[in-house]
Each structure stands twice: as structure tokens, then as C-alpha cells.
Write a protein that binds this DNA or RNA. Structure first.
Lengths: 212, 212
DNA sequence: TAGATTGTTAATCGATTAACAATC
DNA sequence: TAGATTGTTAATCGATTAACAATC
């Protein structure tokens, strides 16, 4: 089976939507319905669902509750995974407030900053630690995912430290290509670049060959 | 010429890097050097540069200053483009502080919120307007790009209003597939989905077939 | 010149889409 | 049953990579 990051991203979107639909009392859904809500093709939805080993029924489509369970079983670690955010600036704080309490299986357990004004406090419900002792704290808490929101000059150093402490997945907001070992996964969110892409295609929609 | 959003994103990254290198006194660069810094192949760098109509020299590689000019000429609108941010919550404010003053050709000229505590003020250097009069304000200021950071329930409504007021490019942070006319370009940043992708591949790196 | 690099075409690769038999 | 939908294979599409002649 071929599992690309695009498939995982779509599964995550399916789950979120299905979760809402179930709360509204829906029990079944057809591929084309889900597809139009997510903005993909029905064939793609069917293939993604096939990929995770769940099966629908030609008469009733997919059972929403079961499909949500299947996706959760596929995506989530059984015992959950713990996340740390490094860099409690404006963006870091916004991300803390955004994620706190959202996914119990993927919870931000710690924030780190080098500013004494920031560590030692609880910010948006998250305990903030000194980055001096980051490596030990990450090990003690059993954190395996890092969100990097430090200034670009510190991003690589930060990555090195948290990887050494046991982090194997990084969501990186710093605009730099991090160098990491082959067994560490990095996903970048580069807001400047994305905004420039929007600006370009807002003027050149004829050329648009959107792939993501 | 085929111009995908990936090419535009890479060009944006090349420009940022080259800009820094030039400030450090470098005048020339080879494709493989730029490639290793951005994390792509040298062939890809050469093809991208070819795409924008700039040429290097087998002896000296690319002239950094000229290449930056070529990329700017390709990416930027001559007279610049104006951006509005809608939704001055935690994330919205963080994005304001992130972008303000960064790119003169792509400047956030206005923020909008429905909360009287927020509009009428200047936040992170950006004037905040009431969203009651959003359509007119956008028209008057000549804004063509929107950044949507409102709650998910309001995102579609917000998109409809700003598109009607003349916006043709949207950077959307709300986790919903916006329905827009064919001549409007939308790029989504979905932090929850991206974090879930990181979590998945941090546990399954053997399956990793990263495409972005 | 010799050698490294560029520009550009052809081959490869992977993901998406189309198509349709199997199913309820 | 008839008809719509699912599961799954084959065809298509686009982007990346490999290769190499042209160039300085």
C-alpha cells in the first residue's frame, strides 16, 4: 500500500467532517457526498477508504461511525502522542490557543522559551518551560512531536536538540529547510511563501495548475 | 510554459535565500548550491530558473542580483498588491505581526473584525476596521488578496463578501473547503491536518512518500 | 583546451482519473 | 429485479529525474 502525506491529510479532513456530520445525527454517507464536501473526487474518497481497509456497502454507502473509528485507528497512535511547542512568540501563543484541548490523542504537553518572562507560567493552558533544560524535559515528558516557532536563526539548533531528545516528527514554521536524519519527518508551513503563491495566482489564474 | 503552485513556492524560497546571500556579499551561485540550501535537486533549480526566462553561465553559475531581479519581476505585481486580514483573533494578530513591513509589494493594508473592542484601533501596525462595512472598505482600499482567520462557521460567508468586493486570491486558515468562482484562487493552511500528518509519519517513516 | 556547469529533451515515477465488473 | 454505488484495475496526466549536448 502506498501512503503519501496527501492521503493522510485527506483522511484527517474526512474525519473532521464525518465527526461533525455524526454530531448532527447522520449515520451514513456516500463517497460523492463526502467528496463534494472535502473538495476531491468520489473515486479518490473510495480509494482512500479502501486504503485504510474499511469497506462500504453499495446500498447504504459508508457507516459514518465505523468509518470515523477506522480512520482513527489508522491515524492515531493507540496511546496518543505528546507534542511540544518551542518558541512562545506571537505565532507560538496563537498555535497554543488553537490546539489546546483539541485532540486528546495529540496534545501539546509543553511549551519552551528562553525568555524568563515566559517560562514558569501557564500560557493558553499549556505549561511553559525554560529552553535551557529542554532536552531533559522532553525526555521526561515522553514528547515525540515538536512544533518549531522560534526565529529562523534558531530553528536548526532547536531541531537538533529536540531530535536528540527523542522527537521524530516536526511541524516547522521557520522559513528554513531543516537538516534532519532520515528517520525524522518534517512538514513545513511557510506562510510567506504561501501568501506569495496566492498573490501570483490571483493575477494568473489561467496558468493555475494547482497540485495541492 | 507550465507554472504550478509548487514552482511559485520554490521561486519564493529561492528569492528569500538569494536575498540573504547577497546581503552577505555573495555575487554568484551554482544551481547545486542553491538546491542544497532549499532542499531540492539541482536539475529542478535549473528548470525553475529557465522557466522564468533567466539564464546563467556555465562558468560562473547565476548572478545573484540579476536572478533576484528576475524572480521579483516574475512573481510580483508591478504596482504591488494589497492584502486584508479578516478575523483578528489570536491567530490573526500573530499573522499581522508576522507580515507587517515584510514585503512592500504585498502589504497588509487592513484588518477586519466584528468586535468593537478590536476595530477602530491599530494592531501590530495595521489599521483594524469594522467588518460591517467590509465590502466598501475593501473596494476603497483596492484590496485584492484576503487572509481568512475567522472561525470556521463564518469562513464561507467571509469569502463570499470579500470576493464580491474584488478579492481574487485567498489564504484560508479556516478548516473548510471554500466554494469560490473559477477565477478566484484559494490556498489553504490547515494546521490541524498538517500536525496529524507529522504525527502519522513520525511513527511510519518507512511509508513516507512525501510529495510536498 | 579540459572540465564543470548550463539548457533542454527524453525517460521515469507517482498520483489522479476513468472505467467497469461486482455488489447490495 | 433494476439501478445506484462500491472496489479495483487500467489509462492518463503531470511533475520529477536522468541524461547529455552545448557552452563558457
Amino acid at each position: 500500500m502506498m501512503v503519501s502525506n496527501k492521503i493522510i491529510a485527506r483522511l484527517s479532513q474526512y474525519r473532521r467532517l464525518l465527526h461533525n456530520l455524526r454530531e448532527n445525527g447522520l449515520t451514513n454517507i456516500y463517497s460523492h457526498e463526502l467528496a463534494s464536501m472535502v473538495g476531491v473526487t468520489a473515486a479518490q474518497v473510495r480509494r482512500d477508504i479502501m486504503n485504510i481497509g474499511y469497506s462500504g456497502n453499495p446500498n447504504r454507502g459508508y457507516d459514518i461511525a465505523e468509518l470515523v473509528r477506522s480512520i482513527a485507528h489508522f491515524l492515531d497512535a493507540e496511546d496518543g502522542q505528546k507534542v511540544a511547542l518551542i518558541g512562545v512568540g506571537n505565532l507560538g501563543r496563537a498555535i497554543l490557543s488553537f490546539f489546546i484541548g483539541r485532540r486528546p490523542k495529540l496534545s501539546i504537553e509543553a511549551a519552551f522559551d528562553s525568555d524568563p518572562q515566559k517560562y514558569g507560567r501557564v500560557i493558553h493552558g499549556c505549561r511553559c518551560y525554560s529552553s535551557d533544560n529542554m532536552s531533559n524535559t522532553i525526555k521526561e515528558l515522553g514528547i515525540t512531536i515538536g512544533i518549531i516557532t522560534v526565529p529562523v536563526q534558531e530553528a536548526q539548533k532547536t531541531a537538533d536538540i529536540i531530535i536528540n531528545a527523542g522527537v521524530s516528527g516536526i511541524l516547522n514554521f521557520a522559513p528554513v529547510a531543516l537538516r534532519v536524519p532520515y528517520n525524522v519527518y518534517v512538514e513545513d508551513i511557510d506562510m510567506t511563501t504561501t501568501l506569495e503563491t496566492v498573490a501570483y495566482f490571483s493575477r494568473h489564474l489561467g496558468n493555475n495548475a494547482k497540485g495541492v
